[in-house]
Design a protein around this nucleic acid. Structure first.
Lengths: 349, 349
DNA sequence: CTGAAAGCGCTTACAG
DNA sequence: CTGAAAGCGCTTACAG
């Protein structure tokens, strides 16, 4: 690989001049033809600045870490894509890290956080202990932003979780359902709590009572959603509608209902929060409330980049409520008592 | 952040000794108590070696690039997870890069490949032009391995694509189907070709003729699979079984068939290659042939690490056929003429 | 056996 | 206005 010295030799100038020309130093006054010679020499030698040397000199590496619990969780794919896009725009590269692994192995963690290998960290918490470990270890040592939840110790950006859950609940209430259950998110995060509050608020808003045994833990996977739905179906009088705080749990609820020999949406309506690309390929396709995950990823990166650049995080917590949660009508929800007219949405499109 | 000089000062030794103690230099003979003082000082100061400095000195950064076309493609999630696991084991960190972006923006590409920002690159081709651009740019400049396909210019590792497709085809033949169609992968890669060959070979093996219009491009998405299936269904005499080289296309075929008012598997059996975690939640759940994608990710990283360490790639092309392709029986395939006995698999579990 | 010194490739404050 | 020189933090061949 060609170095800056090689370029300088070829162009007949010192390395300083090469560096300044190539980096567009405005305080440099140099003859146009010299400038051209430098640029030409760099091109001819296929010169690329050495990443490590530049990082060492500038104390900035150009990478942003993204700490997630499960890379393959399809729900967060749009968020990761959005973060990637914004990072690229700002000249950063995204590095994926595994939260459980970070929390387990202090060695790895120190290398990531303390070594200057990344300029900042985006953390997607899941409401578990490992998140706290990572949050505390990171605080004061590295620019960091908690994404998709609220944090005590770090700046954070959350989505309109209450509004989303309320929208989903209102949808079922609008369809005439009164006997509703909610599948709560697991974990101890704000996100989990806000989603549940959104359900309760919507119910209260219509003066519909919520039974104690009608808000149960549905987890955030298909399997946990199945299990939760089986509990609801074993109740003396099962609900006629279910609001799932996790779209994956909602899918589990759908398959459990079907396996129990009941019809969706004929016997039970189901709506989930967050869209996932295969929700529309289920039978019936799952009605969901969509939240701007891609936008969240972009905003989070922009905020982190501002922090890296030294712009203070004046606003510690941000609620990203624009664009607003959006109801995506598919086949899993229908009016409680089907009417002869076609106004109730039974099938997508 | 504490530097090696800080640690040396505190322990009363020179930076050289600190470096050697901390890196376990076997050629260093030093009194045990000195060694302990150094270790203690490092711990007290919370010393972490600076990543950039070490990288500059050793010409090795500890990162492996993974170039994919679509991070959110759920089919490759296990591969990425496997690569991540192996990278972590070998002290490397995985950086995701976007092939289309790499190919489009020469600037970005130079920075990634020529700057020493990564020690090696894993490339997952999709059989499109962008792959060739990246492959050529990378050759001779960086240790690189092509994963899940064969390459002319780079070492590569492929899965048993022919065997997988043959297994899927044999499954339908075993069920009594004779009138089969194949949904080909798009793109010009070996993978696409080998899958199609696997279909043709299995058919030939049983002496079953393949109609010219029965091998059509099914692409690698749900949408393209739907479109391809609609073409097959519009044929005068549609097939009774479909082998989809892409599991996503298979899912598209399933929804298209259902939407056309036909029953799966009653009117048409469908089997796909590769599993994807929601294939079992479809109605009916999709029968697939599973290939060891996680293992592929691990093996690819191990091979790349060996190349980075200077071990020559003696074996340019590797066919990873262990463990062998495995048929996962679900509900989308059934005997052509349902018999009264229960031996034909109609429903999962 | 141990420490001083060079050097990885870059940027930039400073002297000429 | 331009160039020489220092220094980012580390590792390691080399002299003592």
């Amino acid at each position: 690989m060609a170095t800056i010295a090689d370029v300088g030799r070829r162009a007949g100038v010192t390395p300083s001049v090469v560096s300044r020309v190539l980096n567009g130093d405005p305080s440099l006054r140099v003859r146009p033809e010299t400038r051209e010679r430098v640029v030409a020499a760099a091109r001819e030698l296929d010169y690329t600045p050495n990443h490590a040397a530049r990082a060492l000199r500038q104390s900035r590496v150009g990478t942003i870490g993204l700490a997630v619990h499960d890379i393959s969780n399809p729900v967060y794919a749009p968020l990761i894509a959005g973060a990637q896009r914004a990072a690229s725009t700002h000249g950063y590269v995204l590095v994926l890290a595994d939260v459980p692994e970070l929390a387990r192995d202090g060695q790895t963690f120190a290398r990531v956080v303390g070594s200057g290998a990344i300029d900042g960290l985006l953390l997607l918490p899941a409401g578990v202990e490992a998140d706290r470990v990572v949050e505390e270890a990171v605080a004061e040592r590295l620019p960091a932003v908690v994404v998709n939840d609220r944090s005590q110790s770090l700046p954070s950006i959350e989505l309109a979780d209450r509004a989303a859950m309320s929208l989903a609940t209102d949808h079922l209430l609008d369809l005439g359902h009164r006997d509703l259950a909610a599948l709560r998110l697991d974990g101890a995060g704000h996100r989990a709590r806000h989603r549940t509050e959104g359900f309760e608020r919507a119910m209260r808003g219509r003066g519909v009572p919520v039974g104690d045994d009608r808000v149960i833990d549905g987890g955030h996977t298909v399997a946990s959603g199945r299990a939760a739905m089986e509990v609801l179906l074993s109740q003396p009088l099962p609900p006629t509608g279910v609001v799932a705080a996790s779209v994956l749990a909602g899918i589990g609820a759908l398959t459990a209902t079907r396996d129990a020999g009941l019809g969706v949406p004929d016997d039970l309506s189901i709506v989930g929060v967050h869209d996932v690309f295969f929700a529309e390929f289920l039978t019936p396709a799952l009605t969901v409330v969509r939240l701007p995950l891609g936008h969240l990823g972009e905003v989070a990166v922009e905020r982190l980049v501002a922090m890296i650049d030294g712009d203070d995080a004046s606003q510690p917590h941000l609620l990203l409520d624009d664009p607003a949660p959006e109801l995506v009508l598919r086949g899993s929800t229908a009016a409680r008592e089907p009417r002869p007219d076609a106004s109730s949405p039974r099938r997508r499109q």
